[in-house]
């Protein structure tokens, strides 16, 4: 079975702090990590590989340093990494991103399954997975929480819904996005780390994938950012003061009005 996992390098949100004075993000010491949901996607792929044999290719679109994320993927069980990187991709919205990834995946040849994390923690859009499925014209299921079995070109899985779950059967090749309940990602192994150190990622540029320039990056994006601003927080901030008793009194008075 040939499995492709889409991964994204994102800033580690746990290091991101809001600067109380300027109300902006403080990025001091923020490290780049593999998008946490993608770690679950990768683990799902590696488990499938262990069960049914095959290969796992991790693919990412990003700047050259995103190769680090491919190394992490190899350390955690992927066989190979593909970096889709070109200045022309900058500013891509999800529409342009899914186009770029689809072209790159077509270039890689046949596959059975594409697995993505349900969303990336920096953008939170959850659109690239479904967009990619549409462009590749393959069936797609979002929010897989369990893979039951994978036989004769079909895959059975459970899809998490707002009020429960659905049992799904889908023909392959197909694409799914996974939620974190699906598994507990492994930590890299020693052998994986050694393999990762030696790994030479396949690097694909816009020309390599035969992409139409007008469909890439900012130019290829249907959405455009009009402005970016800091969220304003509640205006009537009020710190209660005094002894415990006094604070509780004040709070109860406020609560009375609210409830």
């Amino acid at each position: 079975m040939k499995i492709i996992v889409c991964v994204k390098q994102v800033p580690d949100a746990k290091d991101v702090r809001l600067d109380p004075k300027t109300n902006t993000l403080s990025r001091e010491g923020v490290e780049s990590i593999m998008n946490p949901f993608d770690r679950h996607a990768l683990e799902a792929a590696v488990v499938l590989k262990e069960q049914y044999c095959g290969t796992v290719t991790a693919i990412t679109m990003g700047p050259p340093q995103a190769e680090e994320t491919l190394r992490d993927a190899v350390a955690c069980g992927a066989d190979h990494g593909v970096l889709v990187s070109d200045r022309a991709f900058a500013g891509a919205d999800t529409w342009a991103t899914s186009y770029t990834l689809a072209k790159a995946i077509e270039k890689l040849g046949e596959f059975d399954l594409i697995i993505c994390g349900k969303q990336a923690i920096d953008g939170d859009t959850a659109q690239v997975g479904p967009g990619l499925a549409q462009r590749l014209d393959i069936p797609y299921v979002a929010y897989a929480r369990k893979i039951t079995e994978c036989v004769d070109g079909t895959i059975r899985l459970e899809r998490l819904m707002d009020d429960g779950y659905d049992e799904i059967e889908m023909e392959m090749p197909a694409l799914m996005t996974v939620v974190k309940e699906i598994n507990e990602p492994r930590v890299p192994s020693l052998k994986g780390k050694m393999k990762a150190k030696k790994m030479q990622a396949t690097v694909l540029s816009a020309a390599d994938i035969g992409a139409a320039p007008e469909l890439l990056g900012l130019q290829g994006s249907n959405t455009q950012v009009v402005k970016v601003f800091s969220p304003h927080f509640s205006a009537d901030k009020c710190m209660l003061a005094g002894t415990t008793d006094e604070m509780v009194d004040q709070l109860l008075a406020k609560l009375d009005k609210l409830l």
Binding site: V187, P188, L190
Partner: peptide, 14 residues
């Protein structure tokens, strides 16, 4: 490398 792997297990699992 050994330290990295062991440290990650310690932090995430132990």
């Amino acid at each position: 490398m050994i330290v990295d792997v062991a440290r990650q297990i310690t932090a995430e699992k132990i």
